[in-house]
Design a protein around this nucleic acid. Structure first.
Length: 496
RNA sequence: CGGAGCAUAGCGCAGCUUGGUAGCGCGCCUGCCUUGGGAGCAGGAGGUCGUGGGUUCAAAUCCCGCUGCUCCGACCA
């Protein structure tokens, strides 16, 4: 080994470091978890807060959530729901009214025991979810079948003192929406539960461009206090599952616990049937992990805080002219309703800006330089494919909607392809374990319905049941663990 | 909550083994120059070394506690 080798090696090392500095993001293939942490911080979505497990949603992160709220809210209203707001504090006694519910949430409740310098007579929990307070209120509001159904949604923050936290995916405090409805009949409540799952499906697939696996949770995975829980599961790029939304049919469990009764047409006092359904800021994690790549975020146009970033390019002499022209374009796009920003800072090179906004996931970059102006065109670059195209300025307004739609559709298809490619079918525990451990992804397997078999899959393969699909791609005749006849086909995966 | 790792300037790190003036790159500020894929030169600012104790004449460095973050497990949206 001579000195040359070391020297060359050192130089190569340096070059590599430079390159990595430029990228600033750990490649997904190297370490997906680090990629995730790098991306959310570099793209300025969040920052760690001074309280353990809590994060700050910075404007770009919060605007993503606002976009989700906007899209969901119209869908809730369209299906007849109205928003209301219930208190953050829940009296301790409320939790004892539904047995499964207490057991499910007790370990993660934070308590207020003192206020105004005095010890409280009854401890107050900071809500982990609002079934109990809402149940209490519904009992006061509902007396007759004429009062039903009650269709209310709440946008709120909730707290669950999680052991292990991860930004967006699992934080001590998170933001969400929780719908709570009460109905006269089981059928109507069940229909509501399924309807909201459909609403979520529409939102997640068409707005977030994230394909979902729809189905019912197994008893061990269902919500504490529910009769049935339905979920949408999404597959992240590391093959792990993330529960994108849930909808619960609560039967009369909470109605009985909180005495929510109504006098029916037949003059009989009856318990109502309730539902609850929610989607949380965890969904931001899905957007990031389903679409992101080694350059950073890739955001679906429908929710991107900035849909078009305009980068004017030009030497000093031409700069004023180019910036003015770009400003006019920006104003046109703004009045056409696009979320557009222009970055005309002079102390950053165009190349720097290209990388920056790619990292931030902006769907379309509009470059405008003297050459573009001379030929009456703009240069557009797609974040999803990296493709650059020259578009005559006169056609920009017309082309943009198509282009955005195409990006949205392409992103969905890419994600769908990935999910399909990483969905497998297994016939034995060994096969499940092999697939989960060698390639991750989702595995469909037959299940007899026994908790023990489900638990063995968790122990051996490290995968949990995600849900029982409504329409399994294949119906498996026998339980993958015990070989008895299968009652269901179940999706298994490692999960966030 | 168990197991492992990390904590030094805004960010990424070196220094710690063997205690003795806190360093580098990027970023930031000023000026010049520059702009079609993270430009260049010159000058400059910025750190009670996460925190609390201990050992020592002396602690970023050694020892103990605590906190936070990351990873791996058990619990969850």
């Amino acid at each position: 080994m001579d000195g040359c080798w070391y020297e060359r090696c050192g130089r190569m090392q340096m070059a590599k470091q430079d390159k990595e500095f430029v990228k600033e993001i750990t490649p997904q293939s190297e370490d997906f978890s680090r990629w995730y942490i790098d991306v959310i911080q570099k793209a300025d979505l969040m920052d760690y807060a001074p309280v353990r497990g809590c994060i700050v949603f910075k404007p770009d992160g919060y605007e993503l959530w606002e976009a989700c709220q906007r899209e969901l809210d119209v869908r809730f209203k369209r299906t007849g729901h109205r928003n209301a707001y219930f208190p953050l504090f829940i009296p301790e006694s409320f939790f004892e009214k539904e047995k499964e519910h207490v057991e499910g949430f007790n370990p993660e409740l934070p308590w207020v025991t003192e206020a105004g310098g005095e010890k409280l007579e009854e401890r107050l929990a900071i809500r982990p979810t609002s079934e109990t307070v809402i149940g209490h209120m519904y009992a006061r509001w509902i007396h007759s079948y004429r009062d039903l159904p009650v269709l209310i949604n709440q946008w709120a923050n909730v707290v669950r003192w999680e052991k292990r936290t991860l930004p967006f995916l699992r934080t001590s405090e998170f933001l969400w929406q929780e719908g709570h409805t009460a109905h006269a009949t089981a059928e109507e409540a069940e229909r509501e539960t399924r309807q909201m799952l459909d609403v979520y499906t529409d939102f997640v697939e068409n707005v977030l461009a994230v394909p979902v696996f729809r189905g019912q949770k197994t008893p061990s995975e269902k919500f504490a206090g529910a009769v049935a829980t339905y979920s949408l599961e999404a597959m992240m790029k590391d093959g792990k599952a993330l529960q994108a939304a849930t909808s619960h049919y609560l039967g009369q469990n909470f109605a009985k616990g909180f005495e929510i009764k109504y006098l029916d047409k037949d003059n009989q006092l009856k318990y109502v049937y309730t539902t609850s359904w929610g989607i949380s800021t965890r969904i931001l994690g899905a957007i990031i992990m389903v679409h992101g790549d080694d350059k950073g975020l890739v955001l679906p146009p429908k929710i991107a805080p900035t849909q078009v970033i305009i980068v004017p390019i030009g030497p000093q002499k031409e700069r004023a002219r180019v910036v003015e022209h770009a400003g006019t374009l920006r104003d046109q796009l703004l009045s056409a309703g696009w979320r557009v920003r222009m970055d005309d800072r002079e102390d950053f090179s165009p190349g720097w800006k290209f990388n920056e906004y790619e990292m931030r996931g902006v769907p379309i970059r509009l470059e405008l330089g003297p050459r573009d102006i001379a030929s009456g065109q703009v240069t557009l670059a797609r974040r999803d494919t990296g493709e650059k195209l020259a578009v005559p300025e006169s056609e920009l307004a017309a082309r943009l909607p198509q282009l955005m739609d195409d990006i949205q559709a392409t992103m969905y298809q890419k994600a769908k392809q990935f999910a399909d490619d990483h969905s497998h079918i297994a016939h034995s525990l060994g096969e499940i374990t092999e697939i989960i451990q060698s390639q991750r992804g989702f595995v469909l397997a037959g299940w007899c319905g026994d908790d023990g078999c489900e638990r063995r899959i968790k122990e051996e393969a490290g995968a949990t049941s995600r849900n029982i699909p409504f329409q399994p791609p294949q119906t498996l005749p026998t339980c993958a663990v015990c070989g008895r006849p299968a009652a269901h086909s179940v999706w298994y995966a490692k999960a966030y």
